[in-house]
């Protein structure tokens, strides 16, 4: 690891299998997957699985076609749900990071807030959903409030601990250099906490997806959650599964997207990020000179 960067070109990890082996493994995975699908399909056609409750892969595939193209009804619900997720996540996580920083930097506030945090941590936050709907009424605002609530906690806790766990010797360095409080915050505490905060944001975005579903299960008006509910009620399980696999894809997108964002923001935690930024800064310096 040491002295990488400009001297040694980054080598391929020796533990990484070769291209042909990887291709073969991928084929094996796909093969296994197909075998499972065929077993499921034939099991259903032979009457071992009730297709009413356990839809066949072929039926699910057809439902994908239906909900996306023939009826094309899923788009609107996706738009509604994802809009709510975005709004609630943004508000909730900004609130979480902001409050986490304030609380983390104030020992007194921290001390007095701690019991409430413990209680809140043990409460299933999503359970507040019916209460919020009752208080704020049906509609987007109560849904956003629910998402905010489930998004708030992980960024809050992570920011709090990130801000508190700055290594003591680095704080001492800043003190010996007579840094102001603001400088210490901006140049040491916040950057140091960024990787932990990003981990919190990742959890929050995942929670936001769950939050919108619960809100829609209860309100049952529109959105992907209510769509799943309606399809299931009508025993159209194949379409319900098409919606759920859509959520799988969205979830995967969130996972990968947050990973990319993390590599971009907390670049120094990843080897490729370090090399990229290091080269870019050297270039900028050379241009300036």
């Amino acid at each position: 690891m040491a002295m990488s960067g400009r001297i040694a070109p980054s080598q391929a990890n020796p533990a990484q299998p070769g291209a042909s082996l990887r291709l073969r493994r991928l084929a094996n995975h796909l093969g296994l997957f197909l075998v499972l699908l065929v077993l499921w399909e034939t099991g259903s056609r032979l009457g071992w699985l009730d297709p009413l409750f356990y839809p066949r892969p072929s039926a699910i595939l057809r439902s994908f076609w239906l909900v996306y193209f023939e009826n094309a009804n899923i788009w609107w619900h996706l738009y509604v749900s994802l809009g709510l997720v975005l709004a609630g996540f943004t508000a909730g996580s900004i609130l979480g990071v902001g409050l986490g920083a304030v609380v983390g930097l104030n020992p007194l506030v921290r001390r007095y807030l701690q019991p409430y945090v413990i209680v809140l941590e043990a409460t299933p936050r999503i359970a507040v959903a019916p209460l919020l709907i009752a208080a704020l009424g049906f509609g987007a605002q109560s849904k956003i409030a629910i998402i905010m609530l489930v998004c708030f906690f992980a960024p809050f806790i992570n920011t709090l601990s990130g801000v508190m766990n700055v290594p003591a010797e680095k704080l001492e360095l800043f003190r010996s250099l007579r840094a102001t409080k603001w400088q210490t915050l901006r140049k040491l505490v916040l950057p140091d906490a960024v990787p932990v905060i990003m981990a919190g944001e990742r959890l929050a975005l995942t929670a936001a997806l769950s939050g919108v579903l619960v809100a829609e299960f209860i309100q049952r008006d529109q959105g992907i959650g209510s769509l799943i509910l309606v399809y299931t009620r009508n025993l159209n399980m194949a379409s319900a599964f098409a919606c759920i696999f859509t959520l799988t894809i969205i979830g995967f997108g969130i996972f990968k997207g947050m990973e990319l964002l993390d590599r971009w923001i907390a670049f120094w935690k990843h080897q490729d990020g370090r090399e990229r930024v290091s080269a870019a800064r050297a270039r900028a310096h050379a241009e300036e000179a």
């Binding site: 290594p167 680095k170 001492e172 010996s176 250099l177 007579r178 140049k187 290091s278």
Partner: peptide, 19 residues
């Protein structure tokens, strides 16, 4: 802490996000 006195620690205490 004063500008005419500077200290170095056992750990390098470099900021990982800076070159």
């Amino acid at each position: 802490p004063r500008p005419d006195i500077a200290m170095m620690f056992q750990k390098a205490t470099l900021l990982e996000w800076r070159t």
